[in-house]
Design a binder for these strands. Structure first.
Lengths: 333, 333
DNA sequence: CTGTTAGCGCCTTCAA
DNA sequence: TTGAAGGCGCTAACAG
C-alpha cells in the first residue's frame, strides 16, 4: 500500500511537506504543492484514516444512531444526512440500537466510545439520562433529530404544535368525536415525539371543550394503525375523525376503515403525520415534516459545529405543513 | 481520555499485558487478567480505534455500499446486515453512492480507500469493470448482494429463475397476453437484476410459445409502476396479466388498474417480486426474496472470510418463494 | 507469564 | 518555505 513517504520520495520532498501540501494546512510553495499533488495522484495515494486520525484526533466520520433502519422516517432522514455529509467528504458510521438493553449498553459504552467519529447525530432516539450522559461524555458535537431531549441539543419539529394543528384541522371541519392513534396515554415516555403529538391532541380538544375523544395505542406501523383503527371504529359510539401520529398508522387506518365498509372521508376523516411518499396514493391528508430535509439540516449543523461555526439562528425548529389530500372532510349531518 | 497506560498503572502491570488481557490474544494469568479487566472497567477504558487499527491493520468495521437508502429493499437488507454485524462487535461504515459520476469516483477512489474497513458489502450495486476493480483493489473481502457480478463474489437469488417463476405462474393460470414492467429492453445493463428478471419473462414466454407480450420500462418506484401500468392497460389490446419486477411497481400497477376501473385479479392479474411488507395490504401475489435474511447472510459471509473460515457451501444462492395472496387468478373466459 | 521496545503512518512543532 | 524528529495510543515481537 502506498504511503506518505512513497509520495515524498516521488516528489523529492519530505513527508512533512507532502502532509502540508495534501491537507492544505501550512505553507507550501505553489510549484512544490503541484509536484506533490501530481505524485500523489500518480501513485494513487490516499491517506490512512487510522494514522491520520491518530495524529490529529479527527476522523472525518460522523456517527448516526438510529433505533430502526427499515422504517420510512428513519431511512429517509438517513438518506438526507448521507447526502449532505458525502458532499463534505465525511463518512458515516452507523449505529443501529435495538431495544435490547445489553446490546444498547454495548453500543453506547463501547462502540461509540472507540473514538471513531467526530460528531454524533441521533434520529428519534429515546435515550434516558444515562444514555444521554454517555453521548455527551464523548466530547463531540451531538445533534438529536426529533424529540426534544432536554439533555441534548435538538433539531425537531414542534410536535405539540403538530398535534394541535392536526386536531384543529379536524375540529374546524366540525368533528366533535375524535380518536387519536399513537402513544399510549399511560406509558408516558415524558416528552417523546409520540407523547407530544398526543398531548397536542388533548390540549386542542380541551380548549375547544370537546370531551368525546379516545386514545388508542399503536406501534407506528401500518399493521398497528390498522388494528388500532379497527378497534376504535368497531365500538358503539364511533368517532367521525381519526388523527394518527404517523402516516404509516394513518394508512393502516384507511385500510381498516375500508375493510369495515366505511368510506373515507365520508364516514370517517383520517389525518396522519409525516409526509410519507405512499400517502399520495391513499389521498392521505397529513402534516408533512420534510424528513429528508431534517437529515440534511442535521448534517449541516454538525458540520458547522465541527468547523467552529456558530449554530445557524433558529435552526433548532423545523418546519411542518398541513397537506390536504382529501382524506378529511366536513362532518356530514 | 483514559488510555491503556492508565489502565496499566491502575492494575500494576505493563501496557503490553493490558493489551493482551483485553484482546484475549497472548497468554495472561487468570488473576492478572481479572485485575486488568477490573481496572479497565473501573476507569471506563475503551480502546482507541485509530491506534488499535494502526497497530494491527484491522478496524472492526465493515463498509456497506448502497445506491439508495430510502427504498424498501435497500433499507431492509441494511437492517439485516446491521443486526448481524452488531452482534459480532463490528461497526458499519455507510457509503451511499449516487448516480453522479464525480461523487461515485470520490467514494470509490478516496473514501473507500482510507483503510477504514475490514470488508465490503455492496447492495444491488451496478458497478462497471472499473468500479469492481477498484473494490477488489482494496484487498479486503467483498460480498456483493443482488445481481450476479462476474467480477465480484456474489450472493444473490437467481433472478432469471425468479422471472421465469413469476411468468410461469401467470401462464399456468391460462394467461396468454402478458406484460412486464421493469427493465427497459433496450438499455440492457448486461446482467443486472432488472434485466435478468425481464429475460426470465421472455424465456418463459418463448418456451410456451406465447408471443403476445410487452415490456414497459419503469423505475422501480410506486409512481413508476403506476405510470407504466397505466400505459400498458390503456392500449387497445389489453394484457390480462402483469408481471412487475418489484413489489413497489406491482403496487403501483394495482393502484393504476383500480384507477382505470379494472378489478384485480378479475380483469387483470398482477404479480410482483420482493416480499415488501406492504404487499400484504394489497393482497399482492409476489416472489418473496427474504431481503432481511439476505443482509444477515451477507454479514455472516464477510465475518467468515474475516475469520478465515471457508465460505459456507451453497451460500451464493439465495432462496425465493412464490407467495399467493390473490392478486392473480385464472384467466376469465 | 510478563515487561521492554520497536514500530504502525501520519501530523506538527521547532529550527533552519 | 522546507526538513528533522517526536509523538498520537496501541500491538507484537523478543527477551527474560
Amino acid at each position: 500500500m502506498v504511503g506518505i513517504d512513497d509520495v515524498a520520495r516521488a516528489a523529492g520532498v519530505s513527508t512533512a511537506t507532502v502532509s502540508r501540501a495534501l491537507s492544505g494546512r501550512g505553507p507550501v510553495s505553489r510549484v512544490t504543492r503541484e509536484r506533490v499533488l501530481a505524485a500523489a495522484d500518480r501513485l494513487g495515494y490516499v491517506v490512512s484514516a487510522a494514522a491520520s486520525s491518530l495524529a490529529t484526533g479527527r476522523t472525518r466520520a460522523v456517527g448516526v444512531v438510529v433505533p430502526f433502519l427499515d422504517r420510512w422516517f428513519f431511512s429517509t432522514v438517513l438518506a438526507g444526512i448521507s447526502d449532505a455529509l458525502v458532499r463534505h467528504g465525511y463518512d458515516i458510521t452507523l449505529y443501529s440500537v435495538s431495544a435490547d438493553a445489553g446490546e444498547r449498553r454495548r453500543v453506547f459504552d463501547d462502540h461509540l466510545r472507540r473514538r471513531r467519529i467526530d460528531a454524533v447525530i441521533t434520529i428519534a432516539l429515546e435515550s434516558d439520562a444515562e444514555e444521554s450522559a454517555s453521548l455527551r461524555g464523548l466530547g463531540v458535537p451531538i445533534v438529536a433529530i426529533a424529540g426534544p431531549n432536554p439533555l441534548l441539543t435538538t433539531l425537531t419539529v414542534d410536535d405539540l404544535a403538530v398535534g394541535r394543528l392536526a386536531t384543529a384541522h379536524l375540529l374546524e371541519l366540525g368533528h366533535r368525536h375524535l380518536a387519536h392513534i399513537g402513544a399510549d396515554a399511560v406509558a408516558d415516555a415524558a416528552s417523546s415525539v409520540p407523547t407530544l403529538r398526543r398531548r397536542g391532541f388533548e390540549q386542542s380538544l380541551a380548549e375547544a371543550g370537546v370531551t368525546a375523544a379516545e386514545v388508542e395505542p399503536a406501534d407506528f406501523t401500518i399493521d398497528g394503525g390498522s388494528a388500532a383503527a379497527t378497534r376504535v371504529l368497531s365500538r358503539g359510539e364511533r368517532p367521525t375523525a381519526l388523527f394518527a401520529a404517523s402516516d404509516e398508522m394513518a394508512i393502516g387506518a384507511i385500510l381498516a376503515a375500508r375493510a369495515l365498509g366505511l368510506r373515507v372521508p365520508e364516514d370517517v376523516s383520517i389525518i396522519g403525520v409525516d409526509g410519507h411518499d405512499l400517502g399520495r396514493w391513499f389521498g392521505l391528508t397529513t402534516i408533512d415534516q420534510f424528513a429528508r430535509g431534517q437529515g440534511e439540516r442535521a448534517a449541516e449543523a454538525v458540520l458547522d459545529a465541527l468547523d467552529g461555526r456558530p449554530p445557524a439562528p433558529g435552526r433548532g425548529t423545523l418546519p411542518f405543513e398541513l397537506v390536504d389530500r382529501g382524506s378529511t372532510a366536513p362532518l356530514a349531518h
